[in-house]
Structures are given as C-alpha cells and as structure tokens.
Write a protein that binds this DNA or RNA. Structure first.
Lengths: 144, 144
DNA sequence: TTACGTGCAAATTTTTTGCATGCAC
DNA sequence: GTGCATGCAAAAAATTTGCACGTAA
C-alpha cells in the first residue's frame, strides 16, 4: 500500500523514512510525533522533527496511518490496520481501556457510509462509561 | 446542570458568561472558539477571546459541552445533549462533516457495554472517508 | 544530473496564562 | 469589601514552511 503509493507519486525511499516507518510499526498504538521522534532518535540521533512530521503525514495520506486526537492537544497516529477491527470501551474513572469487536457495528458502518455516498476509510468508535471495578468501588454513592 | 455546578463551585454569573452560553446554545453544532467569538461579538463587541475560551472550558468541565477535534487542527465544542444521539461522517479530503443517526448502533453500543459490565455514559463514533463531492472531484483525473 | 528529501530555524497557528482592573455576591 | 471574572497582550505549544544542502533514482 505504502509502496504502491510511493511509486505512484514518485516518492523516494530514504533511510529516514524506512527508519521512521519501521519504528512506527513497532511503537505503541497512539504515538505523538514527539514520542515517535524520541524512539527514532534512539536509532539515529540526527533525524529531525520535521521529517517525522512529514513522514507521518505521508502515511496518513496513503491510508497506512490515521491521525487522531484525544483532546490532550496533541495529534497522535495509529496504524490503520490495527484500528480497523477493534474499538474501545474507556472507563471515565480509572481510564482503563478495553478493546472489543462487534462485527455487527462494522457492517452498520458500511451501510451508513453507503447511504451517504462516502467511501469509507477508517473509523473511530469509543464508548465511555464506568467499568465494573469502579462501579463496585463506588458502592451506592453516585459521583456527579 | 450548569447552574448547579456554578453554585457548587462558587462561580459567578456575569453578562459575558450568559451571552456566551446563550450564543453557544443557538450556534451550529461544532463551533470553534473563533466562530463562537465572532457570533458573540455581534451582540457585544468587547468580549475577548480568552473569555470565550474559558467559558467553554467551563461548560466542558461541568458536562454541558464536549470538546472535540476533527483533525482540522481546531478544537470544537458541541452540546453534550445533542451529541448523545448522532454520530459523524467526516470527509478526509475536504473535512466536511455530516451527521447521521443510526438507532441500531445505539442499541449495539448498549449491548456491548452491558457485555463488559460498563455503565455507559457517552460515546464517540466517527466514520472517516471520502465524501461524494470529493470522489467526483477526483473523477477521471488521477486521484493523487 | 535532476528534483525530491532532510535538517534547521523561522513563521504560523492555536491554546494558555499573567496581571491590572472591574464587578458579582 | 473580597475574590472571581474580564480583556489585553504576552507566553507557550504545536504545527507548518522556506531554504540550502544531501542524495536516491
């Protein structure tokens, strides 16, 4: 996918790009540019912020990565593949994250996209709530 | 909700806050600070950016508004109530946002939450893709 | 050789914050 | 009167971009 895109666009395969892409594939699921840069620099101290920035932009454009932001003021990137088949249940109290798969939702998404004429690329589906543990912790009291 | 929160926290009800909140309630569903400020200034030219910024932060804290970002580099705000029943289709090329409702998804969400013992509070569901217009725009020409 | 890619630093853009003054309570 | 709120402008953050030099093709 990336390969084809690069060929089509006449883009070059440089050491930096190879390193950044490889690092990104092995990194945590939601890295920021800064985080990724730090990891990249463990292998090659000379790589610049702008190169990581531009490479991730490239990955996002060709559909290999998705840009996301979680309200912490940073843009984060995730592998599109990984994202494709899991969604998240997030506890609003302890921030625990549980992944779930729900094929029926996937299918519904396709249907909605089709209804609006969209060519679906990716999705984000997050359910926020209180996990069982935190519910137990609260007992009868209600937070607000 | 806002009222209670403000009382509890000892916050004051000022003309600016009243105006900003009122404007926010009547505004488009995903306003940025800038957009909201412009509208607020139609009523009162002296209101500052920082006040709008701080007021929306306040609304977000007490649960009346949700902060969201759609990858266009701006933080946007939406009414929490409104958010409860619609989701978004977002064009990755022109950043256009279409709202949709899909009761079946809502129901599935409930089911998933129940399956994991979560007490559902809210959710985010965004489908990213290419809108019809941008597909057409690419038409015969190379999609790049 | 040609023109894309890189690194650096500067420029932009957006969000936050400090402070003197105003005003709700 | 007290202390939160406001407006302005400055500061921080984060993202983009210009440019001279390096290098894949």
């Amino acid at each position: 996918m990336l390969r084809a895109y690069m060929d089509r666009k006449g883009l070059r395969s440089t050491d930096q790009r190879k390193l950044i892409v490889e690092t990104f594939f092995c990194a945590d699921n939601h890295v920021s540019i800064e985080e990724l840069l730090a990891q990249v620099r463990e292998s090659d101290r000379r790589v610049g912020y702008a190169t990581v920035y531009r490479t991730l932009k490239l990955l996002a454009e060709c559909g290999v990565a998705n840009e996301r932001s979680f309200g912490d003021g940073l843009t984060r990137y995730e592998l599109a593949d990984e994202a494709a088949h899991h969604d998240h249940l997030i506890c609003v109290e302890c921030a625990d994250i549980v992944e779930f798969e729900e094929p029926a939702v996937e299918e519904l998404q396709e249907r909605v996209a089709r209804r609006y004429g969209f060519e679906l690329r990716s999705h984000k589906h997050e359910l926020y709530g209180v996990c069982p543990r935190c519910q137990a912790k609260r007992g009868g009291a209600n937070g607000n």
